[in-house]
Amino acid sequence: MTLELIAIYATIVFLIIGAIFTFVAAIGLLKLNDSMTRLHAPTKAATVGIGAFLLASMAHAYALGEPSFHELLILAFLFVTAPISANFIAKVNIHKRACEALPVPAEDEMWSTLDVPPGEEARAKPQTGA
């Protein structure tokens, strides 16, 4: 009896947390100024909000006497995929020039290439013979 009461109160707390986070996400999506700042508001807050709703569902299922842990699957899936979709949307913003341009990278021939750096041609020549 007491455990079910605690589960009901946990449901209430998780519902409050989820409602607050979801509302903050919606306000951030609507009110912020820049595309990139708008991107950061819902991708974090809505994930935590939906996670809190799923935890509330788990607590409520426990209070009903039939505990279920299926919701952890959706939670894990959301937590894994939210940064990926956020990364894709950030790439779209960069591609459409909806944000500040990236700084010009410094001159460097050695980064992630197989080019021979200047001044080292002699050393990099293939050794014939031997």
Binding site: T22, R38, T43, A98
Partner: peptide
């Protein structure tokens, strides 16, 4: 509110983000 952002969103990234948020809210 996400639907408002979907309509007025000045750029494509904002519209994609609004659709993503709407899917999350539908899950909730």
């Amino acid at each position: 509110m996400a639907m408002v952002r979907l309509v007025i969103g000045p750029d494509t990234g904002d519209r994609i983000l609004a659709l993503d948020t709407m899917v999350l809210n539908a899950i909730g």
